[in-house]
Design a protein around this nucleic acid. Structure first.
Length: 508
RNA sequence: GGCCCGUUCGUCUACCGGUUAGGACAUCAGGUUUUCAUCCUGGAAAUAGGAGUUCGAUUCUCCUACGGGCUACCA
């Protein structure tokens, strides 16, 4: 059993965009596979046609691709266990459900949803919860409570029946969870879960176990919301006689809201202003769109790095990891047990780290696209130079413009606060003197502007801070930006002088 | 309600019986930047509570509290 090649799967259901919790589950599966030289399988669990959302599967596929999570087998690239979409495997499940009936592990149930609702309401009235189990199943309509003849009559007359698992009466089921240790459930607290629905489709439980077995999955790594169904799944493996090749189970802690109670939801992102999804999602039903990390300007490396460290840590103080590195050092033992609150601020920090690691050229290419969208024409060389000057103060490509627009155009407005602070009554005259002085300069580069400029200001006995800050206001329109002489050089002598005179005219 | 899982600075977490309980984000204070940001230095900041076990508990056990998940012919 330990000889088997590691095979893991990510098995989302295409009911909407994959949220970051799902991406993290996929990531941990992928990293586990990489670490052990195994395979990563994508399986689409579309057994609920009512909740099927067009485009969702494609979204999932594209999200994983953007993240750099490579799929070894899946609906798009195929593989030896195709198909990888459960709707296309539909015909296969019935025989397994019937096998369970034949072996006495399952039975037909004929109760209508109205009858079940009634049973629930009645129980509720008595302050109890209705459970379809060993205690109640004799009172319900099924092939266990009814005679074989009656059952067969119903079976032949209608297709409206389900197949339920015959949950043992009172039995402890213990199974090891790789990050939590051994967990025990008593079957008396569990119910007779539906395995096969009246629409001819299997439920998650049946399809999941059958496919994991058929696809030779060795490790099931999924969200903590599945922990309560682990005993059912274990019992199914036993009932099928597959216990010797049953996968090991691991349940990942959930991602919680940044503030308040509960698990992270789409609403939190809207409210707090951060994406909850990897990619932009346009809902085909409501027409609503949700922001994505990719479109918000996050680098995938930063996104992955952030996700990897949410619930997992390497045990060292290193925080920056490439996908490659993660694939070498990831281990399930180092995944935490408790839910992790999501921190959008830290994600920005990660992005900054990757942002400043990028070369000026790489950033310039991205920045050029932004410039184009703004209708600004600029040579690559200038974009590279500008990126080099301002990258330290940005987290995103979209922030470069705000830090550097003055390299491409004269300021159209002047920051009121800076005017109040730096533009005293005597400043216009001083600035005109500076403009005249600049006209006399021959050389125009930072060093050869700075030296004569300093001498000039010193000679005049003007206050340095006054001059420098006012000059910055003239050239930039605000009180920020890179070295002032670098700016002078980059925009050119004529433009520098013209901006000074324009500011004198415009600032009141 | 029942079942299961969890609980270390505000947040993510390290320390798998002996530490001045470490790091990162955020925050605060200095410094650099004749600007802003970056950056550098420093500060404040935690073992949920109570019983055990032990020479010694953040670490092991139990109870309580709190948090989370599940409790569908959804996954």
């Amino acid at each position: 059993m330990s000889e088997r090649k590691v095979r893991v799967r990510f098995a989302p259901s295409p009911t909407g965009p994959l949220h970051i919790g799902g991406v993290r589950t996929a990531l941990f599966n992928y990293l586990f596979a990489k670490k052990h030289g195994g395979d990563f399988i994508l399986r689409i669990e579309d057994t609920d046609q009512a909740r099927y959302v067009p485009g969702a599967e494609n979204y999932i596929q594209e999200s994983l691709e953007w993240c750099g999570i490579k799929i070894d087998e899946g609906p798009k690239n195929g593989g030896p266990f195709a198909p990888y979409r459960q709707s296309e495997r539909k015909d296969l499940y019935r025989q397994y459900a019937e096998q369970l009936i034949a072996s006495g592990h399952a039975y037909y149930a004929f109760d209508t949803s109205e009858e079940l609702d009634m049973a629930r309401t009645q129980a509720e009235a008595k302050g109890e919860t209705f459970t379809y189990n060993a205690l109640s199943r004799q009172a319900m309509k099924n092939s266990l409570s009814l005679s074989e003849e009656v059952s067969n009559v119903i079976l032949n007359a209608s297709t409206h029946y389900v197949i339920r698992f015959k949950m043992p009466d009172n039995e402890d089921v213990t199974e090891v969870d790789l990050i939590r240790g051994s967990v025990t459930f008593n079957t008396a607290t569990l119910d007779d879960k539906v395995l096969f629905k009246s629409d001819g489709m299997p439920t998650y439980h049946l399809a999941n176990v059958v496919d994991d077995h058929l696809m030779q999955i060795t490790h099931v790594i999924r969200g903590e919301e599945w922990l309560p169904s682990m005993p059912l799944h274990v019992l199914l493996y036993r009932a099928f006689g597959w216990e010797s090749t049953m996968p090991r189970f691991t349940h990942l802690p959930l991602i919680l809201k940044p503030e308040g109670k509960g698990k992270l939801s789409k609403r939190d992102g809207d409210k707090l202003g951060f994406p909850v999804f990897p990619l932009l999602w346009n809902d085909p039903a409501t027409g609503e769109s949700s922001r994505g990390y990719r479109e918000d300007g996050y680098f995938k490396e930063a996104f992955i790095n952030m996700l990897a460290l949410l619930g997992w840590n390497p045990g060292t103080e290193q925080e920056l990891f490439s996908m490659e590195e993660l694939g070498q050092i990831f281990s399930l033992e180092r995944v935490g047990k408790s839910g992790a609150r999501f921190d959008p601020e830290k994600t920005k920090w990660f992005n900054h780290q990757y942002f400043i690691q990028k070369s000026d050229e790489e950033l310039a290419q991205l920045f050029l696209v932004e410039l184009q969208n703004k209708g600004v024409e600029a040579p690559l060389a200038l974009a590279i130079k500008v990126c080099g000057m301002v990258k330290e103060r940005c987290n995103f490509v979209s922030e470069i413009w705000d830090q550097s627009y003055f390299f491409f155009q004269a300021p159209t407005a002047y920051d009121e606060k800076i005017i109040a602070k730096r533009w005293k009554d005597d400043v216009p005259v001083l600035m005109e003197n500076i403009a005249v002085f600049f006209e006399t300069l021959k050389a125009w580069n930072p060093a050869e502007i700075k030296e004569p400029f300093s001498n000039f200001v010193t000679e005049k006995e003007w206050n340095f801070g006054t001059i420098m800050n006012a000059l910055r206001l003239c050239l930039v329109g605000g009180g920020f930006g890179p070295d002032i002489f670098e700016i002078c050089e980059t925009i050119g002598k004529q433009e520098t002088i013209s901006r000074i005179r324009m500011a004198i005219r415009q600032i009141q």
